[in-house]
Amino acid sequence: MDSHLILVGCGNMGYALLRGWLSSSTVEPGNVDIVEPIDSLRKRAALLRVNTHETYETLPANADLVVIALKPQALQTELSSYRSFSDHAVFVSIAAGVSVERLKFLLGSSRVLRVMPNTPTAIGKGSTIIFPDSAVPDGDLAKVTSLFKAGGAVHTVRQERLIDAATAISGSGPAYIFHLIECLTEAARELGLPAAVADSLAKETVYGAAALAMEASDAPGELRRQVTSPNGTTAAALAVLMNESALESLISRTAKAAFKRSLELSASEQRP
């Protein structure tokens, strides 16, 4: 990309995006400016040879793409500082639950997209959902899509409610999987496996199963059946997980809790 990009905020998600963009050569370090007030985070970003700034005041005026990686609660006070880019830049927000209408109001621009990536974008294995405002030109959508493809798969939705739903699955989802790995590791230790072996087996099993699901032509349900011998060890384990839809119910409640919170954040951001 030949865009000059400003990344506002370089915490965990912002840094994951930055690493993905640079490692894939989607953007050149010299064409990236980071605004990050926390000294340690700014120094971490500087190691990637990008331009770093403590505040917006020293930013170059020619940026044509502004990615906002701030916490939702920070947008009310911070976004007005970037209105000077509204006549020539497209804005991307990764803040959960902050609507496009709210972003347009705060930025004074109609060239606004909501995007929900996840942390595996740092290694090119992520999933990103994009919701563009209806006023966003096709060229802007193509530019943003190209940028986020550096981190993995990209999907576009045309109803804003669906980006909140996607947040509950792919945005928050890595945390669910990391916790599953924690649980598998602890279960392995309880069964007597050494800590290092338990840790490796849990990670390898989740990684391998996900890779197989991505590569296989069979649906996950069929892959599950292929592993499950009648009256075998897997069948005994699944009898626990599938009894009265125990795991399915838990995952459904988990995703709905995240979705509900995203909607609550959106509602709170709409208030004056």
Rank of each mutant, 00 (worst) to 15 (best):
A211L: 11
D218S: 12
V206Q: 01
V136L: 11
H155M: 13
R224I: 07
E204M: 06
S229Y: 03
C183W: 10
D133N: 15
E182G: 13
S127L: 12
A210E: 09
P120K: 07
G126Y: 03
L193Y: 08
A196G: 06
H179L: 14
G208T: 01
G126D: 08
L212H: 06
S172G: 05
D133M: 15
L223R: 02
A196D: 10
S217R: 14
A219P: 06
A211S: 12
R158P: 09
M214K: 13
F178E: 09
D138S: 15
L212R: 01
R158M: 15
P174E: 09
H179K: 15
R158V: 13
G126H: 05
T185C: 06
T156A: 11
H155I: 15
T228A: 02
R111A: 11
G192Y: 05
E190D: 12
A236P: 01
T119P: 04
T233F: 07
K203R: 12
P220Q: 02
L113Y: 06
L193E: 00
P194Y: 07
E222G: 05
I169L: 11
T205N: 00
V144H: 08
L201H: 00
E222M: 09
G171M: 03
A202Y: 00
R114P: 04
I163R: 03
P120Y: 07
K149I: 04
S229I: 03
R224W: 00
A236G: 08
Q159H: 14
D199C: 05
T156L: 10
G221T: 01
L223H: 02
A236H: 10
A211D: 08
T228D: 02
A213M: 11
P194C: 07
A236D: 10
S109M: 14
V154Q: 00
V115E: 02
I129F: 13
A165G: 04
G192N: 05
T233I: 11
A122S: 15
E215V: 12
A210K: 06
P194Q: 07
E160L: 13
G221M: 01
A122F: 12
G124R: 07
S110P: 10
G152I: 10
Y176W: 10
R189I: 15
R189V: 14
L162F: 14
L180S: 13
R158Y: 15
A235W: 02
G152M: 06
P230R: 03
S109L: 12
R158T: 14
V112G: 07
S229N: 04
Y207W: 11
A166N: 08
T228V: 00
P194N: 01
A153Y: 13
V112D: 02
L162H: 13
K143S: 15
V115L: 09
A216L: 08
A211G: 07
V144K: 10
Q226A: 09
V144F: 08
T128F: 07
G221Y: 01
Q159A: 14
R189C: 15
A235D: 09
G171T: 02
F131A: 10
T234V: 05
R225T: 01
K143C: 13
T121C: 14
I169C: 05
I169Q: 03
I129Y: 09
A198N: 01
I181D: 00
T167L: 11
V115W: 03
G173K: 02
V112W: 05
A142M: 15
T167W: 11
H179Q: 13
A196V: 07
V136P: 07
A198M: 03
L223V: 04
R158E: 14
G221C: 02
G124F: 08
A236I: 09
T234L: 03
V197H: 06
